[in-house]
């Protein structure tokens, strides 16, 4: 038992280190921003949070569930509630499955959803993109890229999250020429292998929990499968999918033979558009998610509910990026400058 003193010293040291590390931000109110996975998409949201943190005098705890699993997110939310966090904004991974738990959270602290909604969980507000509409914009880009119809392959991390379903269905509805449904939170799931207007949806590839490496392999496999097709369009619905597609296409030496339409503002995607390899992308405004989520939470913890929108939904319009821009479009060059400035702030 002679080891005890030294171990005790070790413990005391650890304790001290951690305590000192924490105490710096103690007097400010703490709010939390929880994402649905650790992808780089969230860097912009983090920038937004950081900006709002300074402006509105709260401390933001920014947490990214490591493997994109709902159970992991549930644990993080529980921990945050126990930690005396005053408000939480979360991108829900599995809305249906998590609703019951989110209701418990919402009963304790004001709960916002962002990026990915869970409409029935007692949240005070949803901030994000109308993913269904953004999906229709993707459909529009496909129509432009392949005006005579063709074969589509869709790449996305998982098909379960609402945002993935909304984007995919919006895209398919646009291609099939269907009207917008009443409730975009309760969508059908258009099956693979069918015709949507002039377009045949070959398959929907998923890559979680591995992520972008698997996404590249998926794209590469799809290229092999569809080697004989002429009018081919690959659609990447999550931020890392378009660069993954681009990389696979480049490896197989098929640049220009496959149209690529993307989603989100990955640096490589934007560069791909500039180079003419990617037709276009539809971007959200994650910076605004972060900034406004913190703005709303800061007001809520001070008891100010007037900031909330009436219908509880705050959409930030999507934008469409193509090489040359145009009406309602932004040119890739302009957009690239904008995001670079944002990241160097």
């Amino acid at each position: 038992m002679k080891s005890l003193p030294s171990l005790r010293r070790l413990a005391a040291g650890l304790l001290l280190a951690v305590t000192v590390g924490c105490q710096q931000g103690q007097p400010r109110m703490r709010v939390a921003f929880v994402t649905n996975n650790p992808e780089t998409f969230w860097t912009f949201a983090e920038k937004g949070c950081a900006k709002a943190e300074k402006e509105f005098g709260v401390e933001v705890v920014f947490r990214k569930p490591a493997d994109g699993d709902a159970a992991n997110q549930t644990m993080i939310l529980d921990d945050l509630v126990n930690q005396d966090i005053k408000a939480i904004a979360v991108s829900v991974i599995n809305p249906q499955g998590q609703s019951a738990h989110l209701k418990e959270v919402a009963a304790k602290v004001p709960l916002l959803t962002q990026d990915n909604d869970a409409p029935d969980c007692g949240r005070v507000c949803y901030l994000g993109t109308n993913n269904y509409k953004a999906g229709r914009a993707v459909g529009q880009l496909i129509k432009e890229a392949l005006p005579d119809g063709g074969v589509l392959a869709v790449f996305v991390g998982q098909t379960e999250p609402l945002n993935a379903r909304q984007r995919r269905q919006g895209m398919l509805d646009e291609l099939a020429g269907k009207p917008e449904p009443k409730d975009i939170n309760d969508l059908d799931y258009g099956p693979d292998g069918q015709m949507y207007g002039k377009y045949r949806l070959y398959r929907t590839y998923t890559d979680q929990p591995i992520g972008s490496q698997k996404a590249t392999e998926n794209a590469s496999d799809a290229l092999t499968d569809l080697a004989g097709e002429k009018n081919l369009c690959f659609v990447g619905l999550w931020a890392y999918n378009p660069p993954a597609i681009l990389s696979a296409v480049r490896d197989k030496d098929k640049l220009g033979q496959v149209k690529i339409v993307g989603f989100d503002e990955n640096e490589a995607t934007v560069q791909g558009i500039l180079d003419g390899h990617i037709y276009g992308t539809v971007v959200q405004n994650p910076f605004a998610f972060g900034y406004h989520a913190v703005r709303l939470m800061a007001a809520l913890v001070k008891g100010d509910r007037s900031v909330l929108p009436n219908d509880g939904i705050l959409y930030f319009p999507h934008r469409v990026i193509t090489k040359d821009g145009g009406k309602d479009r932004i040119s890739a060059a302009v957009f690239q400058k904008e995001i670079r400035e944002l990241l160097t702030q």
């Binding site: 493997d67 994109g68 699993d69 159970a71 549930t74 991974i93 979680q208």
Partner: peptide, 17 residues
């Protein structure tokens, strides 16, 4: 117990690691 406790199961990631 996982399913009962977390009330959801994502086929691609439940229990990974």
């Amino acid at each position: 117990l996982f399913f009962l406790m977390y009330r959801n199961a994502t086929p691609s990631s439940a229990g990974s690691l």
